[in-house]
Design a binder for these strands. Structure first.
Length: 624
RNA sequence: GCCCCGGUAGCUUAGCGGUUAUAGCAGCGGCCUUGUAAGCCGCGGGUCGCGGGUUCAAAUCCCGCCCGGGGCUCCA
């Protein structure tokens, strides 16, 4: 017996005409049921009333789980090629019905032998769609989940290890995590993934308080608004990542954000995860919003003429945005969004040797990028995932990844390949709630070149399929900001002073005149500093100096310069340095020294002006 | 999507069946103006998330929806 079990919002069906003479008598009107579990049932040769009862026992366990007590038994022959005879089938279906009634289930049965039309709405939770195969012999009942991805997940067998930089591979349960607290948390999160935390993630409070970003109720959940300061930080990181990837040698392109659901090259991708897409209905077609830059770039590459001389060929796009309609309960501040900004760099490689060589370069690139953004190796943990086959023939390569990273890494090894890649690594940030999320990642893809018809021509003039690496050197930009804010909060929690890297601080220098009589001097100081491409502003509001300093500190401003009579007569500035503690906070320095110090510390990083007025009295408040 | 928790002024919040719904910060008006984390006085400001219901009476109780947080699950 085969049962397609669906948890429904509703179903409507209408018997249209009898298909066989044995068909049951019934009034041919429209029947409707709400909030139920439908059992599309196919009776096979060899099924008995015993099979029927066992099937209902199975179903009842599920009903308890989803707290539903209404069931529709719907004869559905299309699930098997080994059907029982109609008379047997009717008997068994009736047995299911009466046994279910006996168990106190509210049960309905659609008529057998009719051609019926029906429409229904299936619920969206992971257990809503299940396929059951109930055997006649009474052996264990198999339960399969219909979604291909979930099916793959079931088959997957993972073996977890810690790989040390010296090359030793230790099963996770035998590894001594002393001194590797962060790695322990990461491993625990990856392997168990169940942890009850009832706390607002700290970064969501900070993103509002610092006027960086906020929820936008008028949009879909997980689509954010960005205030001027947040937009500045975000676009600075975007530009930095882009500069680094271009320096690495990638070709920067731009591709559409939406694609035709019915395009042959994309259909298989789309239909694999239809519930995760945003759909846009246009005049005569349906389009889905991209969840990564893969399609656009692959379609472009499949039209390109590529020679082995061009390889490795690197292509890059910064997606504004990528869309993933994550389930509402999965969204979390800037950590998990439905619309996010994702650098995506692919590399076509001639063969595995070239792919490995290139992967090493990209690993180093990713470390540099995170370092530049302000995350050191203490802030993230490495995971490497691969198939057993790949491991056996590429041990040295895997070791070298860990050696470059320089800390023990979490290893997940799969018995067989069910994704499109043979290896992938990630850097994962562990936050204040002990949640881990991936930042940088790279994958070795052995499948998509063929699927998209991407070829290169080798030395002998023959068409060959390249390998494709998929790398995001920083991960989603929003997630980088999440990591910076969570890191700042960690510092704060342990008694330190939270701040952003100088090159990302919206205001780098705040000038505060001691009183109204020094506004002129303050303004000209601001002009002078701004000429050096430093983000400087000044507090011209009618408040006390103490108050202005307090507010500048609450904005995490790295340098606060107070200007009054002393500074003007001595030609020395009094600079309050956020990084210093207590009595040491105040430094006496010449203007040129301050400028030099800032230029030195921000060298190699992009600069953008803050799009807010330099005079604070002219600034609106976006929040509180 | 399901389960649990929450939503009161721009922000943080008191009130949790019974006068005209608290307060601080912010905003606006005025006063005050020299040394490193909150100067003083006054004035505005509320569809108590939205919709429905129960009640003589609802911010308060019930139902549905929206938004946020957490969990389940998932992350191509």
């Amino acid at each position: 017996m085969k049962i397609l079990q669906l948890h429904l919002n509703f179903i409507e069906y209408r018997p249209v005409e009898k298909e066989i003479s044995l068909a049951e008598d019934i009034e041919p009107k429209t029947y409707r049921l709400d909030e139920l579990v439908a059992l599309f049932t196919c009776v096979e040769k060899g099924d008995t009333t015993e099979t029927a009862r066992r099937a209902i026992d199975e179903v009842r366990a599920f009903l308890n789980k989803v707290k539903v007590n209404r069931v529709l038994i719907y004869p559905y022959a299309h699930l098997s090629s080994d059907l029982a005879s109609p008379s047997e089938a009717i008997t068994i279906l009736r047995e299911m019905e009466s046994y279910a009634k006996l168990l106190g289930i509210e049960v309905y049965r659609a008529p057998f032998g009719w051609c019926k039309e029906f429409s229904m709405s299936v619920k969206g939770h992971p257990l809503a769609e299940q396929f059951k195969s109930i055997s006649a012999e009474g052996e264990a009942v198999k339960e399969e989940v219909v979604s291909k991805a979930l099916e793959a997940e079931e088959k997957i067998k993972s073996y977890w290890f810690i790989l040390k930089p010296d090359g030793e591979m230790v099963p996770v349960e035998k590894f001594d995590f002393a001194g590797y607290e962060n790695l322990r948390k990461f491993a625990a999160y990856e392997m168990a993934k169940s942890r009850a935390v009832h706390q607002q993630p700290p970064h969501t409070l900070l993103m509002k308080k610092l006027e960086l970003a906020d929820y936008e109720e008028a949009s879909d959940p997980g689509n954010f608004r960005w205030y001027p300061k947040g937009e500045l930080i975000k676009s600075l990181i975007e530009e930095f990542v882009t500069e680094k990837v271009i320096e690495y040698g990638a070709l920067k392109v731009e591709t559409p954000v939406m694609y035709d659901i019915n395009h042959p090259a994309l259909a298989s991708y789309f239909h694999r995860f239809p519930a995760r897409q945003y759909i846009v209905k246009s005049e005569d077609k349906e389009l889905f919003l991209r969840f990564s830059a893969c399609f656009g770039q692959f379609l472009m590459l499949s039209d390109a003429q590529i020679s082995y001389r061009h390889l490795p060929l690197k292509i890059y796009e910064l997606t504004h945005y990528s869309f993933r309609r994550e389930k509402s309960g999965e969204l979390a501040g800037l950590r998990r969004l439905r619309a996010f900004t994702m650098p995506d760099c692919h590399a076509l490689c001639a063969d595995m040797e070239q792919a490995k060589e290139e992967a090493i370069k990209r690993l180093k690139l990713s470390i540099e990028v995170l370092e530049g953004i302000g995350l050191t190796r203490d802030d993230y943990e490495m995971a490497i995932r691969f198939t057993k086959d790949f491991y056996e023939s590429n041990r040295d390569f895997i070791m070298s990844l860990v050696k470059i990273f320089g800390k023990p890494a979490l290893i997940e090894m799969w018995e067989e390949r069910f994704f499109y890649f043979v290896l992938k690594w990630e850097f994962n940030f562990v936050d204040n709630l002990d949640k881990a999320s991936a930042l940088s990642t790279d994958q070795i893809d052995v499948e998509n070149a063929e699927r998209y018809g991407i070829y290169y021509v080798d030395e002998r003039g023959e068409k060959r399929t390249p390998l494709i690496l998929h790398c995001s050197p920083s991960g989603a930009i929003e997630r980088d900001i999440y990591a910076l804010l969570e890191k700042a909060y960690k510092v704060y929690k342990s008694g330190g002073v939270p701040m952003l890297p100088l090159w990302l601080s919206p205001t780098q220098v705040r000038v505060i005149p001691v009183s109204g009589s020094f506004y002129k001097e303050a303004e000209s100081l601001v002009r002078e500093i701004a000429e050096h491409r430093i983000r400087v502003d000044w507090d011209d509001r009618p408040l006390t100096m103490q108050r202005k300093i307090r507010e500048a500190e609450m904005e995490w401003i790295p340098y606060i310069v107070v200007i009054g009579g002393e500074e003007i007569s001595s030609q020395l500035l009094t600079v309050r340095d956020r990084r210093l503690k207590g009595g040491q906070k105040l430094r006496k320095m010449r203007l040129e020294e301050l400028i030099d110090e800032i230029k030195r510390e921000t060298s190699g990083k992009p600069f953008k002006p803050l799009t807010l007025p330099a005079a604070l009295s002219k600034r609106p408040r976006f929040r509180g």
